[in-house]
Design a protein around this nucleic acid. Structure first.
Length: 296
DNA sequence: CACTTGACCTGTCCGC
DNA sequence: TGCGGACAGGTCAAGT
C-alpha cells in the first residue's frame, strides 16, 4: 500500500489529531506486528505524550515524551486510523469512514488516549509493523542506515539522481527506483507514473539514461509525489488516511491501473507487463525500450 | 559482488 | 456455488 505520499498524508492528519495527546493503554497481540513486550509498553508508552509525528521514507515516526519513538511501516495493507471518543460509527452511518466499526478482524494494535480517543493499526496481510525504540537510536537501526535520500528534499537534484542511480548501473531503471537504498519513498505506483512522465521504458538499464532523461525523470518524480500529496495519496485497494478517507491521486494517474485505456499523451493503448517482479504499466508508443549500446 | 526470485500473509477476483 | 490459481501498493533472505 502506502508509498511516500500516502505516509505523508497520514502524517499530516495525525499531526493535527494526536500531537499533545497522552497514551492511556495499548492493546496488541500479534508479535510480528509489534515485537516489543508489555514491560516496554508500560515503561515508555503508557502516560507518555505524543510530541510530534515525522516521516522518513515510508516509515511514520511518532515521537513520545519519554524520548522513545513509535515507528510504523504500513507495508502493503497497513492503516492507521484515528477515532475520537464519539466517532466510531459503523459503515452506513452518515459520519462513517471507509472502515466500519473498529477494532475489526484486521486490527493488530489499539492505542487509547486519556481522552478515550483511539488510534488503530489495521493490517490485513500482517506485513506491516510498529516498533518502539529510543528516539536517539532510530538512525542507527539497519532499516534507516541503508535508506537513500528523500526525493522531495530541497537538495535532491537531477545530479543527485544520477549519482544514486549509478549505484546499480546494470539494473533496469524501475528496479532501481524501487530500491529504497537508492532513493527513499518511491513505490510501484509512482515509479510507473514518473517513468511515463519522462518517457522512459521501465525496463531500460539505468546506465543508458542520458542527462536529458535524468533531468526529466527527476522533475517527474518530484511532480508525481507532490501532486499525490496534494490529492491525499492513492487508494488502490486498502489505503485510507488517518480519518479513514480515501485519496484521489488515481483519478489523475496517467498509466497506473490504466491498462487497456488510451495513453493521455498519444492515444496508444497502455500495456501492463512485469518488470523487476512487479506489475508495470507503460505506453509502448511513447516509452520505447532502447537496446544496450544506445543512449536515450 | 550484483542482481533476481521467493517468502512473508490475507483477501479478492477470474476462469473453469 | 465451489475451487484453484494469480495477483495485490513492500521488504528481506536466499538463490543464481
Amino acid at each position: 500500500m502506502p508509498e511516500l505520499p500516502e505516509v505523508e498524508t497520514i502524517r499530516l492528519g495525525l499531526t493535527k489529531l494526536i500531537v499533545g495527546k497522552t497514551i492511556k493503554s495499548v492493546i496488541f497481540d500479534w508479535p510480528k506486528s509489534f515485537p516489543n513486550n508489555a514491560k516496554d509498553v508500560d515503561n515508555f508508552m503508557i502516560d507518555s505524550t505524543i510530541s510530534g509525528v515525522r516521516r522518513r521514507a515510508k516509515v511514520l515516526i511518532m515521537d513520545l515524551s519519554t524520548d522513545y519513538s513509535l515507528l510504523t511501516h504500513l507495508k502493503m495493507t497497513g492503516q492507521l486510523v484515528y477515532r475520537s471518543k464519539n466517532l466510531n460509527f459503523g459503515a452506513g452511518h452518515p459520519g462513517a469512514s471507509l472502515v466500519g466499526q473498529l477494532p475489526d478482524k484486521s486490527t493488530r494494535i489499539t492505542i487509547t488516549f486519556t481522552d478515550n480517543a483511539k488510534l488503530y493499526f489495521n493490517d490485513q496481510r500482517k506485513f506491516g509493523w510498529m516498533k518502539l525504540l529510543p528516539t536517539i537510536e532510530i538512525d542507527s537501526i539497519d532499516f534507516f542506515k541503508k535508506l537513500g535520500p528523500e526525493p522531495l528534499s530541497a537538495d535532491f537534484s537531477w545530479l543527485t539522481l544520477k549519482h544514486r542511480l549509478s549505484r546499480r548501473p546494470n539494473s533496469v531503471v524501475k528496479a532501481v527506483l524501487l530500491d529504497q537504498s537508492v532513493i527513499a519513498g518511491i513505490g510501484n505506483i509512482y515509479a510507473d507514473e514518473a517513468l511515463w512522465g519522462a518517457k522512459i521504458h521501465p525496463a531500460t538499464p539505468a546506465k543508458l539514461l542520458s542527462d536529458f532523461k535524468l533531468k526529466k525523470l527527476q522533475a517527474e518524480i518530484t511532480y508525481v509525489l507532490k501532486l499525490s500529496i496534494e490529492k491525499g495519496g492513492s487508494s488502490d485497494r486498502n489505503y485510507i488516511n488517518a480519518e479513514g478517507k480515501k485519496g484521489s491521486y488515481l483519478s489523475f494517474a496517467r498509466v497506473f491501473r490504466r491498462e487497456g485505456l488510451p495513453c493521455p499523451r498519444c492515444d496508444h493503448i497502455i500495456m501492463k507487463t512485469r518488470v523487476a517482479g512487479r506489475g508495470t504499466h507503460y505506453c509502448p508508443h511513447c516509452q520505447v525500450l532502447k537496446k544496450l549500446g544506445s543512449r536515450i
